[in-house]
Amino acid sequence: MTEISHSIIILFIIIGAFLNLAAAYGVVRLPDVYTRNHAASKATTLGVVFLLLATFLFFYIEMNLFQSRLILTIVFIFLTSPVSGHLINRAAYNSGVKLWDKSVRDDLDVTKKEAGT
């Protein structure tokens, strides 16, 4: 039983660390603000949540401590990280950061022009 729980905890930690690493790699590699934000706001959310879940399981199984703060942190991260991603994107767009050259559509720009003229 402890073997199974240990392997689950180790698996969660590895997945979480890997997702965070991939998010950092994506931030370095992707071409513009908006696509970088995709990597940063999605992969890190799940990565941190996996790490927190592993911590929770470790304390619960090994030391028999029910840490409800970790569960609350998971909920708070899920509630706030999409909003922060949205706000960074919106601020970047409003201050005129250009999309990547190979972007194919920009509906927001069209409507802005129509409103302006």
């Binding site: 991939a22 999605k42 992969a43 959310t45 999309l99």
Partner: peptide
């Protein structure tokens, strides 16, 4: 959430950047 992470991983770790981003 799980599916979106797999999709992002596929794009980030793919050898060529051949996606077509845009706003709709």
């Amino acid at each position: 959430v799980l599916l979106s992470n797999i999709a992002v991983l596929k794009i980030v770790l793919a050898p060529k950047l051949d996606m077509k981003p845009g706003i709709f």
